[in-house]
Simulated assay, not measured.
Amino acid sequence: MTSALDTARAVLTSESAALAQLASELTQEFEAVVAALLQVPGRVVVSGMGKSGHVAAKIAATFASTGTPAQFVHPGEASHGDLGMITRADACILISNSGETKELADIIAHTRRFDIPLIGITKKPDSTLAKQADHLLLLSNAPEACSIGMAPTTSTTMTMALGDALAVALMEERGFKQADFQTFHPGGTLGAQLLTVRAVMHRGEALPVVAPETEMGDTLLEMSAKGFGVVAVAEAGRLTGVITDGDLRRNLKGLLERKAGEVATGSPRSISADILLVDALGIMNDNRISALFAVDGEGQLEGLVHIHDALRLGAA
């Protein structure tokens, strides 16, 4: 009977051999992917389902902490409103060993509709993901390391290592130094808990804002373009209402015939930009909302913080 130690050594040997194979099989397409990601003005959105989703979240986190703005979007949540987080300014990396993960279909369609760069990571060159992707990074055809050859082991190891390779290549291309790394790691969780909303909030042109008299068609365009799943209704710079996905669903009948001020929820919940980010996260969690607008003492709109900003910075 094989001992646990023998099994462990066999798994590590198998996976290390797969990594060596992957390194030898990398093509110039890798450089094309790095070049494409360097041109992204927004964020790199990484997604996958199941084990691939866990790997995608890790890759996004590594990108974000090494100078490449990134975030993980769950494909299931994307199909229920979070597609608005993926904008024309972004790029998507989608991970699927088979290339046929059905939960990724809506994200793939979204990227094709709005000409958002799509990078696929898969083992199957003839798969749907491979055919739809603008750039394709193929995993080596190496067996899984488990005894039944089915549990994601070798494939997820290769994918995670490929994500690390992309992150490091991007770091070097950007000239990312130790001082920059320290900027993104000012004390781990403790540092994040001391951040204020003002330090991380979106402001200026990044804010989704419309006037009360704005037609709902134009309001929807603003909401989609800014990618936060919410839009502020402001008059003379003062926050008077907020429109969320829930407001849209409640007002579907005749929606495009109405004005933003008619659809918005009045007297919306807002915060001061000077409160701690961790406190803003608590408010969002308590009220089951994903974004909060920050205003000054006169109600003038100053910025927006999204729950993903807080989670990405480790304020949880």
Rank of each mutant, 00 (worst) to 15 (best):
residue 2 T to G: 10
residue 4 A to N: 09
residue 5 L to W: 06
residue 10 A to G: 13
residue 11 V to A: 14
residue 12 L to P: 01
residue 13 T to N: 15
residue 15 E to I: 03
residue 18 A to R: 08
residue 21 Q to H: 07
residue 24 S to D: 15
residue 25 E to I: 01
residue 27 T to I: 08
residue 31 E to W: 02
residue 33 V to T: 09
residue 35 A to P: 01
residue 36 A to P: 00
residue 37 L to Q: 12
residue 38 L to P: 03
residue 39 Q to L: 14
residue 39 Q to A: 15
residue 41 P to G: 13
residue 42 G to V: 07
residue 44 V to Q: 01
residue 48 G to M: 11
residue 49 M to L: 13
residue 50 G to L: 14
residue 54 H to T: 04
residue 55 V to F: 11
residue 60 A to Q: 13
residue 61 A to L: 09
residue 61 A to T: 06
residue 62 T to S: 13
residue 63 F to L: 15
residue 64 A to N: 07
residue 67 G to L: 10
residue 70 A to T: 01
residue 73 V to F: 11
residue 74 H to P: 00
residue 78 A to R: 00
residue 78 A to G: 11
residue 78 A to W: 03
residue 80 H to V: 00
residue 80 H to G: 01
residue 82 D to G: 06
residue 82 D to Y: 03
residue 83 L to C: 07
residue 85 M to S: 12
residue 85 M to N: 05
residue 91 A to Y: 02
residue 91 A to R: 00
residue 101 T to C: 08
residue 103 E to Y: 08
residue 105 A to K: 05
residue 105 A to Y: 10
residue 106 D to E: 14
residue 109 A to D: 15
residue 110 H to L: 14
residue 111 T to F: 12
residue 112 R to H: 11
residue 113 R to D: 15
residue 117 P to D: 15
residue 117 P to K: 10
residue 120 G to W: 06
residue 120 G to T: 05
residue 122 T to N: 09
residue 123 K to G: 15
residue 124 K to T: 14
residue 126 D to E: 12
residue 126 D to M: 04
residue 128 T to C: 14
residue 128 T to V: 10
residue 128 T to H: 11
residue 128 T to L: 15
residue 133 A to M: 09
residue 133 A to V: 05
residue 134 D to Q: 12
residue 145 A to V: 01
residue 148 I to Y: 07
residue 148 I to F: 07
residue 148 I to C: 10
residue 151 A to T: 08
residue 152 P to I: 10
residue 154 T to A: 15
residue 156 T to W: 05
residue 158 M to Q: 13
residue 158 M to K: 08
residue 161 A to I: 02
residue 162 L to W: 04
residue 162 L to Q: 07
residue 166 L to Q: 02
residue 166 L to W: 03
residue 170 L to A: 13
residue 178 Q to R: 05
residue 182 Q to A: 15
residue 182 Q to F: 09
residue 190 L to A: 11
residue 192 A to F: 06
residue 194 L to C: 10
residue 196 T to F: 10
residue 197 V to D: 00
residue 202 H to P: 00
residue 202 H to D: 11
residue 204 G to H: 04
residue 207 L to G: 03
residue 208 P to G: 12
residue 212 P to H: 12
residue 215 E to L: 12
residue 215 E to V: 05
residue 216 M to I: 03
residue 222 E to K: 00
residue 223 M to C: 05
residue 225 A to V: 02
residue 226 K to G: 04
residue 228 F to C: 03
residue 230 V to H: 02
residue 232 A to K: 01
residue 234 A to Y: 04
residue 234 A to E: 00
residue 236 A to C: 10
residue 244 T to N: 07
residue 254 G to S: 14
residue 255 L to F: 04
residue 255 L to G: 01
residue 257 E to L: 12
residue 258 R to Y: 08
residue 262 E to V: 02
residue 267 S to Y: 04
residue 273 A to Q: 04
residue 279 D to F: 02
residue 279 D to K: 04
residue 280 A to K: 04
residue 281 L to Q: 14
residue 283 I to G: 13
residue 287 N to G: 14
residue 287 N to Q: 13
residue 290 S to P: 00
residue 295 V to Y: 06
residue 296 D to M: 09
residue 297 G to L: 11
residue 298 E to T: 02
residue 304 L to K: 00
residue 305 V to W: 04
residue 308 H to L: 13
residue 311 L to Q: 11
residue 316 A to V: 03
